[in-house]
Simulated assay, not measured.
Amino acid sequence: MAKIWVLGNGQLGAMLKHAAAPLGLDVEPVDIDSTTPITLAADDLVTAEREQWPTTDITTQLANHPNFVNLPVFPTLADRKTQKELLDSLAIATAPWRPVEASSSADELHAQLGEKVLLKRRSGGYDGRGQHWLHQPLGTVIPDQWHDHAIAEQAINFDEELSLVGVRDAGGQMFFYPLTLNLNTNGILRATVSPVARLQGLQAEAEAMLGSLLSELNYVGVMGMELFRQGGQLMVNELAPRVHNTGHWTQAGASISQFEYHMRAVAGLPLAAPWIKATSVMINLIGSEFNEQWLSVAGAEVYWYQKAVRPGRKVGHINLSHTEPAKLTASLQALAGLLEDDYQEPIAWSLRELNSAAGN
C-alpha cells in the first residue's frame, strides 16, 4: 500500500500511526518544523492531525502533493468566519454571530448579540485561548488588534456540552459514534462519558447535522463536531476536520477507534459500523507528571504523550471502559486517589453521570 504522511507529529499523529500498524499501513507523522527532506512518491497519501499549520519547507512540500486528502477543507474550517458561514449556508443551528470588522464597536455587537458577547480569533486559539469576553455596560471596547481578525458570538446559556464524531469514505458511506457528554473547564476538556442513554433521542438530529457537513465538503476521514444542548435543541459550537479529543474514549469502548477509522478512510480500506463495547470514561491529563501508579488501577488504559509538562497542557489521557457500572465506578474512585485536587471534580462529574445512568 501507499505510504501515508501525517502533517504534524503531536499526540494525534502518534495515535494515528499506532492505530494503522495492525492494518499494515505505513504511516509517518512529520514535524512541521523539520528541516530533514522527505521523499514523496506519486502514489503516497497525505493527511493531517491539525487544521492549520505554518508555511515551512516541509509543510509546503506536503500541501503541494496532489494526494493531500481534504486539502480544500482545511482553510474553510480553520477560519471561524468561513466555518460559521458554511453552517449558516446549510441551515445548521449555531450560536448567533457577527464578524468583527474594522468598523465594529462593542456597543454595536451588544445591540446585535446581547449582554454577553464572546470574541473568538478567526484562526488559532484552542483550549480556551484566543477568546475574549465583552460585557455590558455600554462603553466597553473591542481590544486592539481584534478588528478584522475575530468573530463575535452570542453567549449561549447551554445545559451541557456534547460532541459527535463521525467518519466518511470517498464513496460517501458514513458511520457515527454515540453522542459523547463532555466536561470543559476554562475551555479545556477534562472528561468525557459515552454512550449516555438519555442522549439517544438526540442522536439522529446530530448525525443529520454532521452528515450534511461531511457530504457538502466531500470529506474523507474522521471529523469532530462540538455541540451545545439547550433543552431538546442542539447547536454547533465548533468543527474539527481531524480526530478529536472527545473521541479518545473509542480506543477502549468501540470495536474501531476514531484513529483506525480515519486511517481506513484515507487509505481507501473498507469501513464498518462500530460495535460499542461498554460505557467509557476518558480523563484528560492536564499539566501532570507521569505517575506509574495509574497503571495499578484495574482497567485503566493510559496514553502518555511524552510531552514536556506545563500548566494547562494536555500531556496524556486515561480511558476506562466496562459493561458493569460498579466496576467502572470502583476504578474511577481508585484513580481519584492517584490524581491531584483539580481532577476530583471531573471524576465526581463522571461518577454522577454513571450513577444517574444506573438509576442510583
Rank of each mutant, 00 (worst) to 15 (best):
Met1Trp: 11
Gln11Thr: 06
Gln11Lys: 08
Lys17Tyr: 01
His18Lys: 15
Pro22Glu: 07
Leu25Gln: 12
Asp26His: 10
Glu28Asn: 11
Ile32Met: 10
Pro37Asp: 12
Ala41Lys: 15
Ala42Val: 07
Asp43Lys: 07
Leu45Ile: 13
Thr47Val: 08
Ala48Phe: 06
Glu51Val: 07
Glu51Cys: 08
Thr56Ala: 04
Asn64Pro: 00
His65Val: 10
Pro66Met: 11
Pro75Val: 02
Leu77Ser: 08
Arg80Ser: 08
Leu86Ile: 06
Ile92Ala: 09
Glu101Ala: 14
His110Asp: 07
Gln112Asp: 14
Leu113His: 00
Leu113Arg: 03
Val117Gln: 05
Gly125Asp: 02
Tyr126His: 10
Gln131Trp: 02
Pro137Thr: 04
Gly139Asn: 06
Gly139His: 01
Val141Lys: 10
Pro143Asn: 07
Glu161Asn: 07
Val167Ala: 02
Ala170Pro: 00
Gly172Tyr: 11
Gln173Ile: 12
Met174Val: 04
Leu181Glu: 12
Asn182Thr: 03
Leu199Pro: 07
Gly201Cys: 06
Ala204Ser: 13
Glu205Asn: 04
Glu207Ser: 04
Ala208Tyr: 08
Tyr219Gln: 06
Asn237Ala: 08
Trp249Ala: 13
Thr250Pro: 09
Gln251Thr: 08
Ser255Asn: 06
Phe259Asn: 03
Glu260Trp: 01
His262Gln: 15
Met263Cys: 09
Arg264Ser: 07
Leu271Thr: 04
Leu271Asn: 06
Ala272Asn: 03
Trp275Ala: 14
Ile276Phe: 09
Phe290Asn: 05
Glu292Cys: 01
Leu295Lys: 11
Tyr305Met: 02
Val309Asp: 12
Val315Leu: 10
His317Tyr: 01
Ile318Lys: 09
His322Tyr: 10
Leu328Pro: 07
Leu328Asn: 03
Ala336Cys: 10
Ala336Trp: 09
Pro346Phe: 01
Ile347Ser: 06
